[in-house]
Simulated assay, not measured.
Amino acid sequence: MNDSVAANTALLTEDHQARTSEKRHPPRTPRDAASLILMDRSGKVPRALLGKRGKGHAFMPDLYVFPGGRRDPGDNRAPLAHPLRDDVLDKLLTRTQARFHGHAARGLAVAAAREMMEEAHLSLTPSEYAGALCPDVSKFRFLARAITPPGQSRRFDTRFFACFCDELGLEPTAVRDSDELHDLTWLPIDAHESHPLPRITRVILSDLVQALAEDPSLPFGKAVPFYYSRNGRFVRELI
C-alpha cells in the first residue's frame, strides 16, 4: 500500500471512530446506493458537481456530496436508452451476494441518473424519451465502492459512477438547487478545501485525480477501489 492510500484509509478510520465514540447505533444492513460524479472538463482542471445537504438530514448534514441516493425497487425495472458497458456491469457484480443480479446492478446506474435529476435537475434521458425515466448510462465508469461501517445512523453500500458532461450533451450551467441539495457547485477535483466534504468524498476525489492522471479519458473496466470496515478499521482493496 502506498503512502497516499495508507493516509486515506487512516483518515477514514479516524473519522469513523470519532463519530461513533460517544454513541453507537444498532446493527444495520447496508442499503444499496449509488452516486454520480459528473465532471465538466471544459477547463484545464476537471470540475465535479457537488451540493450541500441540509441541516435536517440524519446522514452527513451540512456537508457537500455528489448527487446520489439509495436504489429504489423501481430502479431495477426502469428502461435504459443505452445500457451499461459489459465491462462495467461485470465489475458491479464482483464481490456481491448471489441474490445481487444484473437487474440490481443496472438499477444502481438508474438510481444514480434518477438522483441526478431529482437533486440537480439534470436529466440523463435523451430527448426522444422525454417525459420518462429512460437514462443513457453507457458512459458511466464504475469508479469506487464504499460501505458505511457499523455503528452509524445510516449504512449504505455505495457505488460511485463517473462520467463527463460533454459525453451526454449536458450543460453545466443548467443545474438547479433542489430540496435535497442546495448551493450546487462545480468544484475543481484537486482543490476543494474551501468546502466541507465527508472524508469518503475526499478519498474518492483523490482516487479520481489519480485515475485521470494515469489516463484523462478515464477508461472503462479498470480495477475499482473498494472501501469497507474490518475490526474497526477501514480497508482498501481493488476489485
Rank of each mutant, 00 (worst) to 15 (best):
R141C: 06
F142K: 03
F140Q: 05
I189K: 08
F160N: 02
D166K: 14
S178I: 01
V137W: 04
R155E: 07
D166V: 11
K139L: 00
P149T: 02
P149L: 05
R141K: 12
E167A: 09
A146L: 05
L187Q: 11
S206F: 00
T173Q: 14
L208V: 03
G151I: 10
A144E: 04
L197K: 14
P172G: 08
S138I: 05
I147W: 08
I204R: 02
H192N: 14
P149R: 07
P172I: 05
D179F: 09
T185P: 05
D166T: 13
D190Q: 12
T173W: 04
P150C: 11
R141M: 03
H195I: 07
V175E: 00
C165D: 08
D183E: 15
I204K: 03
A162Q: 02
L187Y: 01
L168Q: 10
L143D: 04
F161E: 10
T185L: 14
L181N: 08
T201C: 09
L143H: 09
F142V: 12
S178C: 06
P196A: 12
R154V: 13
L143N: 04
L197R: 15
P198T: 12
D136C: 02
V137R: 02
E180Y: 13
H192W: 14
A162T: 01
L187H: 00
L181V: 11
L205N: 10
V175A: 13
P196V: 09
W186C: 13
C165H: 08
S178W: 05
S206W: 00
S138Q: 08
D207A: 01
C165E: 07
H195G: 00
D183Y: 05
T201A: 11
L181K: 07
I204W: 06
E167V: 00
L197Y: 13
I204E: 10
L181A: 10
Q152H: 11
L168T: 04
D177A: 14
L143T: 04
A191E: 14
E171P: 00
P198H: 11
L181M: 10
D157C: 04
R159I: 00
V137Y: 05
F142T: 00
S178N: 08
P172D: 09
H182V: 14
T173P: 00
K139R: 10
R176S: 14
T158A: 04
I189E: 08
V137A: 02
R145K: 15
P188R: 14
A144Y: 03
A144D: 02
G169S: 06
A162G: 03
P198N: 10
A162R: 01
V175G: 03
A191L: 08
F140A: 03
R154W: 09
A144R: 06
L205K: 09
K139E: 11
H182R: 15
I200V: 15
V137N: 03
D177K: 09
